[in-house]
């Protein structure tokens, strides 16, 4: 089991390196899937099969498929990969990498103080424990998650609309302001017209 943990951990790190260093988006997505599968394996070795299953189904399955869909929809082609290669000069990545390395070293030095003193034996953590906790005292978390997903759904469907850029819907500008008692100055429509070239800023 220990060997499986270290091997899959190594695989996860390598695959992640592949994600951040790869110029081709499709390859990047595939590397990410590998990385996520490796992390799922780590979960299994640690004794959390329910989390591992969720990792494969939700992360590697659903979310990554979403990425693949988007990449295919945009259909970036070879030119985009060339552009990526141009952007991946050492002088772009050396600074951030050093910074991240410093952060990592700090984290490790904080972890490596020998004060945790716990060993993961691989005892099973089943879905039952999580379920009773989630639908018992932590019920609020379910509500929170539901609300989060709903908000994401609304936001995504609003932001993702492909409104024609040149001609935004007139209804967005001509909404009544609510000041029915104050007569609208006659220059109001004219101002609306003049802003229509910039109207693409309105989603």
């Amino acid at each position: 089991m220990e060997l499986a943990f270290y091997l899959s951990g190594l695989a996860a790190v390598l695959a992640t390196l592949g994600v951040i260093a790869n110029p081709n988006p499709v390859h990047g997505v595939l590397y990410l899937v590998v990385s996520l599968l490796a992390v799922a394996l780590v979960f299994f070795t640690l004794g959390a099969p329910f989390a591992g299953a969720l990792e494969i189904i939700v992360y590697a399955g659903a979310i990554m498929v979403l990425f693949v869909f988007v990449v295919m929809m945009l259909n970036l082609g070879q030119a985009a990969a060339e552009q990526e290669r141009l952007w991946l000069q050492p002088r772009t990545w050396i600074g951030p990498s050093l910074l991240a390395a410093v952060l990592l070293l700090t984290l490790i030095s904080l972890l490596w103080r020998d004060d945790i003193q716990r060993v993961i034996e691989g005892g099973e953590l089943t879905a039952k424990g999580a379920g009773t906790l989630l639908y018992g005292p932590w019920l609020l978390l379910v509500e929170l998650g539901a609300l989060l997903l709903l908000a994401a759904l609304v936001t995504a469907s609003h932001v993702g609309r492909t409104v024609p850029v040149a001609a935004p819907k007139p209804a967005a500008r001509d909404m009544p302001t609510g000041d029915a008692d104050q007569p609208q100055p006659p220059q109001q429509p004219a101002r609306g017209e003049s802003s229509s070239p910039a109207g693409k800023e309105v989603l």
């Binding site: 951030p96 910074l99 991240a100 952060l103 700090t106 984290l107 904080l110």
Partner: peptide, 12 residues
Amino acid sequence: VVGATLILLSLA
């Protein structure tokens, strides 16, 4: 990240 690193470094 710089801010987080500085805080963690000082902590360490």
